[in-house]
């Protein structure tokens, strides 16, 4: 089954109401910014759309109401065309999977679904695949053909080298020269300090950042027993240890790392969502798109 078909089956056919909510959530997130932008910038009148509860009443077009008794609001191209950059972590660690799919396969599915959603709500979406470097960068565009191109590119992505999120995101930041949304899909197995620095830089460049932390259920429990020779996926030196003996320590370290990530994101105003690979993709996506504090219940 191709990525297209997976996305269609697992996400688009099932989202329905979730999609609408997600669209609203996106718009509401950016509502404040767009207002400030409109004051100072010339924007192109894009047309009317029906009034929906929650719209700013000052945007009602009273002339249309006078002529047609319809409540329509004026929309401008700049405020509705959200530029989203999906950053996919394709480092070696993303190749791990204890269940039906690896983290990378799950992340690719997630990214593809996000791409579809963004374009369907008339937003522009781009893709950056990173590991220790920026392996590829497709600038945002708002056409379905672009999404297909993006998905085709995702099909070819394989897990690569070591993780270097911080430096790579910092190198990617200059390419994001227009306000928008950056959604980082990663397992975040990297130095939190350097990642925090990169996130801060993106925020400084007026990017809305969301981090979707992808984690495998096995990575939370460390399901191995007995004497192990552990081979890393990013060319680390093998280590020998007793699985039962180190499990507790590992879980402690993982918990501390994730806590540090959460603290860093919270301090930077970055929304962090954790999605497990054994979780329903659609529900996970809905949570990922929900505004802060108003997540969709699973």
């Amino acid at each position: 089954m191709s990525l297209h078909e997976q996305v269609q089956r697992q996400v688009l056919d099932r989202l329905g109401q979730v999609f609408i909510t997600a669209r609203q959530a996106v718009e509401s997130v950016l509502a404040g910014q767009h207002r400030s932008l409109r004051r100072g910038l010339s924007v192109e009148f894009a047309g009317h759309r029906p009034y929906q509860p929650g719209d700013d009443l000052r945007r009602l077009d009273w002339l249309v109401y006078a002529r047609s008794d319809r409540y329509d609001v004026r929309v401008y191209e700049e405020e509705t065309r959200l530029r989203t950059t999906l950053v996919l972590d394709a480092s070696g660690s993303m190749a791990y999977g204890s269940g039906a799919s690896t983290k990378l396969e799950f992340a690719k599915l997630l990214v593809a679904a996000l791409g579809f959603l963004m374009v369907r709500q008339s937003d522009a979406v781009g893709l950056a695949v990173i590991d220790a470097t920026v392996r590829s960068h497709l600038p945002p565009a708002g056409t379905m053909g672009h999404v297909i191109t993006l998905i085709d590119h995702l099909e070819t992505v394989e897990a690569g080298n070591e993780t270097a999120l911080g430096p790579v995101l910092e190198s990617l930041a200059p390419a994001l020269n227009r306000r928008g949304l950056v959604i980082l899909v990663t397992d975040a197995f990297d130095d939190i300090t350097s990642l925090s620095r990169a996130l801060r830089l993106l925020r400084y460049r007026k990017q809305e950042v969301r981090v979707l932390e992808i984690i495998d259920a096995g990575e939370e429990t460390f399901p191995f027993h007995g004497t192990l020779e552990v081979l890393g996926l990013e060319h680390e030196r093998p280590v020998r240890l007793d699985g039962d003996r180190v499990r507790g320590y590992y879980q402690q370290a993982l918990s501390a790392h994730r806590h540090q990530l959460s603290e860093a994101c919270h301090g930077l105003g970055v929304q962090l969502e954790t999605i497990r690979t054994d979780e329903d993709l659609a529900l996970g996506l809905a949570r990922a798109l929900a505004p802060r504090g108003r997540g969709v219940r699973r």
């Binding site: 660690s93 397992d187 197995f189 990575e219 004497t227 020779e229 890393g232 996926l233 590992y250």
Partner: peptide, 17 residues
């Protein structure tokens, strides 16, 4: 007798060691 496994979160195991 070692069981060989592949693992993604090696940084945490290395930290433990």
């Amino acid at each position: 007798r070692y069981q060989r496994v592949r693992w993604g979160a090696m940084r945490f195991l290395q930290r433990i060691l």
